[in-house]
Design a protein around this nucleic acid. Structure first.
Lengths: 208, 208
DNA sequence: CCTTCCGGCAAACAGTTGTTTACTGACTCC
DNA sequence: GGAGTCAGTAAACAACTGTTTGCCGGAAGG
């Protein structure tokens, strides 16, 4: 077998593994990981409970796998936003729009991250934290390369990046819990104004 | 019986009710509400499972009660911070210090709020959200009364208040997960710089 | 003092849980 | 084509869950 053409064996295994992940993600929309049962997941997939152990050691293990899946898709969004080279105001609009679109496209993933970031399963908490730190580093690198950051210490750039990432997560969480389109509009509007204020503070950081 | 001297009957009931709340809060340090069992709580308290129903309908009901208890203590902190009348830099230092102190004093309460804010129990999520909104309103009122907010629209003041409250919650969450005193120092330092940047943006909001 | 109230108890209920065991049968590979 | 690999199975395990029932014993209150 070649590198991208898996044998029938491995292909089937990958398939049920992803079915388990999907089922888990779906069930996690209405509960948290520490209460998600192994049998609950296998029942949805239509597979024997014992089969679970062929793919994951734990539910915590499955949770960690979901972290990668969930934040992997966000990575694309962040990179796209950072690549923007337009006016500040347009970058802000584009960012908020991108976040809104992402939440609408992958609501379960976003909800999972928001829910388990401070959830009851240590391994998953730490996986999310580590991944968000990597987001922060990535954003910091991009910010540091901009002329607006001339004269900034690396530490200050990193703290600004952290503020952006935190704000992104909070905005995404708010979108997730939004009741209707009207509330989503209100959230987007607030997020834009907050970003504007932050970027204003950024511009005057080296004053005085 | 007078209004503040409860009968022996009611006093005992209140006592076990608070024992249930305490036990729940303690158990929630290592799991989330949606996986916390009724029997688990009563076992810790040393009371029969059926006794639980004399005080709460649900675990969700107990959770909602915990929200009030947890955010009630924070209310005091926020009011104290808002009452400050010193220089901006001192207000920032005082705020971060107050948050750090509060987290050290009531770690379980703070952890509960962080964990269940986006947790799997709708009623609790909504209770926390509503209470945080009230915090936002309170902060907005205080900000609006400052001379720095002259010329600001009510909406803009409210969005700034929201930014402050979100930042407070994120900082508290970070403190909770901090490993050692060195990491706590780092978190406090970052939080201070972020608040400084935000207040810088605030000062220039009406420019241009 | 005697009745009413009521917080807590013990027991039983039917379901559910995670994990282990020995197994089957289709795919892999020489 | 025959031996070996291994994802998925069925069954059994003890332990646990939330909830209901009838009952007890001491406080409340006339």
């Amino acid at each position: 077998m070649s590198s991208n053409t898996l044998g029938v064996r491995q292909a089937q295994k990958r398939k049920t593994r992803e079915a388990l992940l999907d089922a888990g993600l779906r069930l996690l929309e209405e509960q948290s990981l520490s209460s998600l049962g192994l049998r609950e997941v296998t029942r949805v997939v239509g597979v024997a409970p014992a089969a679970f152990y062929r793919h994951f050691r734990d539910m915590a293990d499955l949770g960690v796998a979901l972290v990668g899946e969930s934040l992997g898709s966000l990575h694309v969004v962040v990179r796209a936003v950072l690549a923007e080279r337009s006016e500040a105001e347009e970058v802000i609009d584009g960012t908020v729009e991108a976040v809104a679109a992402h939440v609408e496209l992958h609501p379960a993933h976003v909800r999972f991250i928001a829910r388990e970031r401070h959830g009851g399963v240590r391994a998953v908490r730490e996986a999310i934290g580590a991944e968000l730190d990597r987001f922060g580093d990535e954003v910091a690198e991009a910010l540091g390369a901009q002329e607006l950051s001339a004269g900034w210490s690396a530490e200050d750039v990193r703290m600004l990046a952290g503020l952006y990432v935190d704000h992104l997560v909070m905005t995404a969480s708010a979108f997730i819990e939004a009741a209707g389109p009207e509330e989503r509009r209100r959230i987007a509007d607030t997020a834009r104004r907050q970003l504007r204020l932050i970027s204003l503070g950024r511009r005057h950081w080296l004053d005085g």
